[in-house]
Simulated scan of single mutants.
Amino acid sequence: MPSEAGLIPADWPEDWLRPHWAPDSGIAVKAFMSTRSGGVSQGPYASMNVGMAVRDDPAAVVENRARVERALGSRAVFLQQVHGAEVLLLQDQHVQPGAAVPVADASVSTTPGLAVAIQVADCLPVLFAAPGGVAGAHAGWRGLSLGVLENTVEALCKAVHCRPNQVQAWLGVCIGPQAFEVGAEVLAAFGQTASPQDSEFFRFQANAQGEPRWRADLAGLARQRLQKMELNYIGSAQGCSYSEPSRFFSYRRDSVCGRMVAAISLA
């Protein structure tokens, strides 16, 4: 796979994230994760909001999505994400005029010119590349606990007839463990007992009212699951969407905000 240099045109925002992949793997992809920079939206959606389900000007969102496609050199399929674990195999029909927005939290593409697009504003985007195919998953805690990453790797391997050890993954920016406060229901979803004892990915910290809460490491939970699948390579970005308001949208921080996109296509 290529290094991060040259994945998007030089005149695009310098702070867009460009994934690092394992060197000399021979897989050519275009991939990036956007930030707040580089779009035309205004107000709380400024400026690179790609979310059509928020109350942004639809014309601005259309233009922002068009900029994403120009950077990729491909048509991008944006999903109606529902915090589930369904994976969609992208087809040309998904980019035809008037096509319904597909409901899924992950997608796979084996077609050059047809790009995967994952929207986030605190949840973790994970991009995948394998010989002959790419994929992306929207991994909030619900989808992660339901197996969205495992389902995505399985679907990608099935689509391109490869094994998990031929798949590479890249974790984008999400809410960090210092900011991601969760309750006992989240621990239960990952099979952990709610207690004041810290565990590998959950640090106990009562809130201001003295109620039990935990700080969750979403990226760490995802990496653990990917490692169990014995992927070829797992890279990750640095940053916290909640803690960097000038750079990233964060639903937990702002409630009214835009959405960023992690996108990938076969070169």
Rank of each mutant, 00 (worst) to 15 (best):
V126F: 04
A237I: 13
P196S: 02
L114C: 14
N151K: 08
L231T: 02
R247Q: 00
V77S: 14
A31Y: 07
Q205A: 03
G140P: 05
S107N: 14
S199N: 04
W141R: 04
R225D: 08
W12I: 02
H83S: 15
A222F: 04
G84N: 13
S246E: 15
A263N: 02
A184E: 08
D254Y: 04
R65D: 10
A189Q: 05
D56F: 05
M52Q: 14
A206R: 12
G39A: 14
C157L: 02
V62I: 14
P23C: 05
A206P: 14
K158H: 09
E69P: 15
A137D: 09
I234F: 04
S265H: 01
F204Q: 06
V173M: 04
V29E: 01
F248G: 02
A155T: 09
I234C: 03
S255T: 11
A121Q: 13
N207Q: 00
F201K: 05
R203I: 09
D11P: 00
F248P: 03
W12G: 01
V68P: 11
L144E: 05
P177Q: 09
G140V: 08
W214A: 08
A179S: 13
G258T: 09
D105A: 08
R225P: 07
P112S: 10
Q178S: 04
V148A: 04
V101Y: 15
F201V: 09
A60M: 12
Y251G: 12
L144K: 01
F32C: 02
Y242V: 05
L127G: 02
V62Q: 15
V77I: 11
L218M: 11
L88T: 14
V148N: 01
A66C: 12
G6Y: 01
P19F: 07
D24L: 11
R252L: 15
